[in-house]
Simulated assay, not measured.
Amino acid sequence: MSERLKALADAGVSIWLDDLSRERIETGNLAELVTSRSVVGVTTNPTIFAAALSEGERYTDQVTALAAQGTSVDDAVFELTTHDVREACDLLLDTWKATDGVDGRVSIEVPPGMAFDTDATVVAAKRLWAAVDRPNVFIKIPATTEGLPAITQVLAAGISVNVTLIFGLGRYQDVMEAYVAGLEQAQAAGVSLRDIHSVASFFVSRVDTEIDKRLDAAGGPAELKGLAGVANARLAYRAYEEFFAGSRFQALKAAGGNTQRPLWASTGVKNPEYRDTMYVADLVVANTVNTMPEKTLEAFADHGEVDSGDQVTTRYDDAQQVMDRLAEAGIDYDDVIATLEEEGVEKFVKSWDELVETVRTNLEGAAK
């Protein structure tokens, strides 16, 4: 076992792998990561699935069968991805049981083309939940304006949700409110709150990428580069602490409601000049998830440091100072967040289209 990753887990950070493939499952690689790398969850996205389908031969039999049945491309995507998530859920079921449902989770997202359609998102989320049919699956829903009411409705139906594509503090506040509204509606409908879990996926590295670009363009202070992502996430955790300490959630907690944990996403470093573990080491704090690509996971296993525990709640003033200095340097925070949200959905849609084309190509090849 990696002692560095164990120390991270002991500090209250749930380590999730941001990757999944049938090869990882069938070769025992994912099980090995659970044992040796303290991995207690998995997140997926269309890019991950497209890469797995392109690089592996373990999908050949299922693709051939789907092609023989005349399965449509969209239905084939659904069958292939839910199969892998179902298998990963089974592999992580013991972890789910040992943590009372907190970890042992595998996330699968609704098609991103539905990001601006509330009703379609709700239908898709319920379909995925039923198809995977495992208590430890998370349905990923983007935190768009239209996604927020969908999140509430899906939670109210007793479905656990991973809210994704959160960049800004204002939108994060909306997400927490959507979560609590879902619990309140579930409670009113007689749905057990104990079985409903959620994480709020707050994206980190992309904030630095966008703000660094703007600092360079404006000739801003170079010393502010690479600071915004962590500062923004730290302030998100402060918002989390304040919100869930409030009376509205505390009443739900008394009835069995679970806290919606912050999840640090996009934690692979984009700028090679930055420490490759910075979005892990600098965001160590209890009751969080850090979902890492394998490269980041292995980097932390090799040389990551958990420096005297909590790196978040003791740094709120520093984080606020960073954001204030960025504003003084002419960085428009609201515009940055709006840009990232728009690009985030566009990237998800592009990735989904690539997945669809990959499956189409595989089906056509199998039909020949």
Rank of each mutant, 00 (worst) to 15 (best):
M1R: 15
M1D: 13
M1C: 09
R4P: 00
L8M: 08
G12Y: 07
G12D: 02
D18W: 03
D19R: 11
D19A: 14
R22T: 02
E23G: 07
T35Y: 01
V42F: 08
V42N: 03
I48D: 12
A52M: 11
L53C: 01
G56D: 14
E57K: 15
R58T: 11
D61V: 13
Q62K: 14
A65P: 03
L66N: 03
Q69P: 07
V77S: 08
F78V: 01
E79R: 10
T82W: 10
D84G: 03
R86I: 03
C89M: 09
L92E: 05
L93T: 14
K97P: 09
T99H: 09
D100I: 10
R105V: 07
V106E: 07
V106M: 02
E109A: 05
P112H: 09
T121R: 04
V122L: 08
A125P: 00
W129Q: 15
D133F: 06
N136T: 08
F138M: 14
I139D: 01
A143N: 05
G147F: 10
L148C: 09
P149W: 07
A150W: 02
A150R: 02
A150D: 06
I151M: 11
T152D: 05
V154E: 00
I159W: 05
I159L: 09
I159N: 08
V163W: 06
L169A: 11
Q173M: 11
V175F: 07
E177R: 09
A181R: 08
E184I: 02
E184R: 04
A186S: 02
R194F: 03
D195C: 01
I196M: 02
K213G: 02
R214N: 10
A217Q: 13
G220F: 05
P221D: 13
G226M: 07
V230S: 11
V230N: 09
A231R: 07
N232E: 07
N232M: 11
N232Y: 13
L235C: 09
A239Q: 14
A245K: 06
G246M: 10
S247R: 14
F249I: 05
A255Y: 01
G257K: 06
Q260H: 03
L263P: 04
A265E: 08
T267W: 12
G268N: 01
P272R: 13
P272Y: 11
E273S: 14
R275T: 10
A281H: 12
A281F: 10
L283E: 10
L283F: 12
T288G: 05
N290P: 00
N290A: 04
M292L: 14
E294W: 11
K295I: 13
E298R: 13
E305V: 15
D307A: 14
S308C: 03
D310K: 10
Q311W: 06
T313M: 07
T314Q: 04
D317G: 03
Q321A: 15
Q321P: 05
V322C: 06
R325C: 00
E328F: 01
D335W: 06
I337H: 09
L340I: 10
G344V: 06
E346N: 15
E346R: 15
K347R: 15
D353F: 04
L355F: 04
E357D: 12
G365P: 00
G365L: 12
A366S: 06
